[in-house]
Design a protein around this nucleic acid. Structure first.
Lengths: 134, 134
DNA sequence: ATAACCCCTGTAGTATACTTCAGGGTCAAG
DNA sequence: CTTGACCCTGAAGTATACTACAGGGGTTAT
């Protein structure tokens, strides 16, 4: 059995984060020792890593709660999980599209800028003043 | 001279947003009418649009305050503005890189998922449990 | 003069994922 | 027996860019 600090170290998060996850319902309420300390089974570390990996690929804690419910639900199918992943994939693609447009505009502008000369003749500022349809 | 509501409508923002921008120092404090109403010159609308366009390409309000300072500073050069734009460009490219990695992983996973079958045999959940170096 | 709409201030709430703080008990080593 | 490291709770703070609300006054048209 592990103390919260052990789980935190092994899971690569802070103890505050663990308490937060518990409060958010992402970790099942652990048993307590006589002294009131939380006691975790060793596989709690894997559970934390699941959460962190899901975050790494873009899932929010809310999404992760949903995934964990599916994981625990014998009636759920693999397709349910896939749906969540596809939804997230599409969200991410949308974000990439938005950012790519920003990148293209900034790249154009920075290439148009001579770097020298006063700000009164800056093509970037001019573009910000006047650019129409972004 | 325009009331705050006029500027809001023409600039495509809410009056609350205008007051917020003023409080944040992005708009110079407007003169007041006898009744205490803010009175704006017509070019205040252009100023708002500058802010909105800068936001559209990824600048935060803090960044925009910085850009506005440069814009108002006769000693500033076009290169200063270009530096800000290049810095933002690189931030955006970083975000795109992170999101692209997420996208690739999710695409791989969703392709590996058969959609049918119980969650206990879901390759996506398995990957989240076990995946090492993301 | 009454409705409908505009304006004012200041404060608090929203979302996300934590982090920090205040105040206090527990545990292991020397 | 004290020091340092660990644990507890509950509340508040962080960042960003607003939005909403409470409570009150001004303006316009009928």
């Amino acid at each position: 059995m592990l103390n919260i600090g052990d789980v935190a170290r092994q899971g690569g998060v802070s103890v505050e984060t663990l308490r937060y996850y518990e409060q958010q319902g992402l970790i099942e309420t652990p048993d307590r020792d006589a002294n009131g300390y939380r006691k975790y089974a060793p596989d709690a570390v894997r559970h934390i890593q699941f959460i962190k990996r899901a975050q790494d690929v873009g899932f929010t804690l809310r999404d992760i709660g949903d995934l964990l419910s599916l994981k625990a639900d014998p009636g759920a199918s693999c397709g349910d999980v896939r749906d969540r992943a596809l939804g997230k994939l599409s969200e991410i693609e949308d974000k990439i599209d938005v950012l790519s447009r920003m990148r293209d505009i900034l790249a154009t502008w920075t290439q148009a800028c001579p770097s020298t000369g006063p700000v009164s003749e800056c093509p970037i500022l001019d573009a910000l003043e006047a650019e129409k349809g972004l």
